[in-house]
Every structure is written in C-alpha cells, then in structure tokens.
Computed example of a mutant assay.
Amino acid sequence: MTLNTLKDVYHDQLQDLHSACKQSLEATNALGRAASDKELSEALIDGSNGIARGLDKLKSLCATHEIDPQGEHCKGMEGLVEEAQAHVLHADFGDDAARDAMIITQYQRMVHYALAGYGCLVAFANRLDLDEDGAILQAQLDNTYDGDRRMTDIAKGGVNQKAA
C-alpha cells in the first residue's frame, strides 16, 4: 500500500496498533500467570481486559474505514514481546519479587508502545476531522495511561521494595 495522504497513514497505523495490541494481549496474559504479587496479577488481568476492549475498538474503526485490521504485522511489538519472554518467562529468578519487578518493567515497555500508537492516532483522527474516531481513540489512550500509572504505583507501593 502506498501512503500518499495522512488518511493512508492513519489507516496503516490503525492496522499496526491492532497487531501490536493483539500481540501484547497474549504476552500480558502470560505475564499475569507468572506474577506472584496479588495486586500485580489483578492489574495484569485488568490490563488484558483493557487491551481486549482496545482491540474491539480498533477492529470496529477498521471496519468503519473498510480496511482489514489484520493488514499489518507490528514488528515493534513483536520485539517487545520477545523481550518480555526472554526477561521474564525464560529467565531464572531466585526471588518472586524480582520477577514481579521485571514483569512490571516489560509490561510498561509494551504499554508505552501502545501509548505512542494511540497518541498518534488521536492526532491523526483530529487532524482528519474524524471526531468520533478521535473520541474513541482518546478514551483508549486515557485508559492506557491509567493502566501505566497503576503499574508505577504497584512498583513504588511494594514490589520494588520487596525485590530490593
């Protein structure tokens, strides 16, 4: 697909973020199963639910624009998922709290990728006067920020202290 206009870029990035969220959903579920801290585990379950809602919204937006949500494969998120697997799921830990600290690290890296994606899409939608799209994407961006802040609070509230 040749990207000639901002709308082309917008469509491409809707597909890319759909792929990123799909990949991060599976990884987040795996991180949740690996977590030992109850609060962290619950936050990851909530994160998975939020990612699933975001996937539904992105799929709906793609349908509105008559584009296939499966049209892109996000290599950026692929790399972040590989990092999460290497640093959490395939790593040896002598301490559960250290693993939980690493889970937060890897999860937040994936979340920050989503924040960038949603932020760009909001800006594109607003510039293209796609007000409904912009509102949907802004809500997802806000929810993603909330999840990121929650992870920071969990880290500061005890996981990092236990890991130290």
Results as ranks from 00 to 15, higher is better:
Asn160Glu: 10
Asn4Arg: 09
Cys62Val: 10
Asp56Thr: 09
Gln23Trp: 02
Arg53Ala: 13
Gln138Glu: 07
Ile154Arg: 05
Asn143Gln: 06
Cys74Gln: 12
Asn160Leu: 06
Ala125Pro: 04
Val9Met: 15
Glu66Thr: 11
His65Met: 11
Ala163Gly: 06
Ile104Pro: 05
Leu3Gly: 01
Ala98Arg: 13
Gly76Lys: 00
Asn160Met: 07
Ala34Arg: 06
Ala135Lys: 14
Ala63Leu: 12
Thr105Val: 10
Leu128Val: 10
Thr28Ile: 08
Asp142Ser: 08
Ala34Asn: 02
Thr2Ala: 13
Glu83Leu: 09
Ala91Gly: 05
Cys62Trp: 12
Tyr113Lys: 02
Asp12Glu: 14
Arg127Gly: 10
Asp12Trp: 12
Met1Asp: 07
Cys74Asp: 14
Val88Glu: 02
Gly79Leu: 08
Leu6Ile: 14
Asp148Ser: 08
Leu44Cys: 08
Leu80Gln: 03
Lys156Arg: 13
Leu58Ser: 09
Lys38Gly: 10
Thr64His: 10
Gln15Ser: 12
Ile45Glu: 14
Lys59Glu: 14
Leu58Phe: 07
Gln140Cys: 10
Thr2Cys: 01
Leu31Phe: 05
Asp153Met: 06
Lys75Asn: 13
Lys156Asp: 14
Leu121Cys: 06
Leu115Tyr: 10
Leu141Ser: 01
Ala52Thr: 03
Ala135Ser: 08
Asp8Gly: 08
Phe124Asn: 04
Ala101Thr: 06
Asp96Ala: 15
Glu132Thr: 13
Ala63Val: 08
Ala97Cys: 05
Gly71Ser: 12
Leu115Glu: 02
